[in-house]
Design a protein around this nucleic acid. Structure first.
Lengths: 101, 101
DNA sequence: TAGGTATTTAGGTAATTACCTAAATTTGTC
DNA sequence: GACAAATTTAGGTAATTACCTAAATACCTA
């Protein structure tokens, strides 16, 4: 785990919000958006961008940064890219801070 | 705890290094520097700046940022300001990431 | 009060990050 | 192949962060 990269990927309010929204997508995104597709893959870029109130390219880049840091998992399905949390990496981060930092 | 403020205070390589050096000062700073004063207060600004290879004002500002985020504890004694880790806040951060993020 | 050391504050420039719009790419459908 | 939708890439500007030097402040001791 590249601690600095992970921390940097979380050092922005919108990115931190996205991570929290994805903890419980049904609480944060309209049901009709989620149920269009397989919700276990996560939420697609444009739905997240809408929720964040930011442009799609900006949010696309945020999501890419977070999945490069391994905090999110991206799944391409057709023309959509879905993002969900990488729970293992998030727990690894907590453990690393607890024991090593 | 202001999660974003804490994360931002850690989102820099030098600041992250400082936090690690302070975990075991005797392993990272010359003994004669530490023993000049009461080591339980931590390490003074100029010793940390020397170790980091950066200017004193830059490091002074880094340390201020980290103690504003409550990750370090500052103690002024005479003309020196000593900094040590705030172990409780670091554990709180780990717990917060584990359970809430 | 004078002078020395440690630190902080001020003020500057360079690098990075935060966003945007426009253009290009990918994938699905007719 | 042509068109449409979703995403990504490119390229730009504004804001923030990363540093520095110089100046100011704090505290000690003679």
């Amino acid at each position: 785990m590249e601690l600095l990269e992970v921390i940097k990927s979380l050092s922005n309010e919108t990115r931190l919000n996205i991570l929290e929204w994805l903890k419980d997508p049904f609480a944060h995104f309209p049901e009709e958006e989620l149920s269009r597709d397989t919700p276990e893959l996560g939420v697609c870029v444009s739905d997240i961008a809408k929720k964040a109130g930011m442009s799609v390219p900006t949010v696309s880049d945020y999501l890419k940064t977070m999945s490069a840091a391994n905090i999110l998992i991206a799944t391409r399905k057709g023309q959509w890219t879905y993002y969900k949390r990488n729970e293992k990496s998030i727990q690894d981060l907590a453990t690393h801070i607890k024991n090593k930092l």
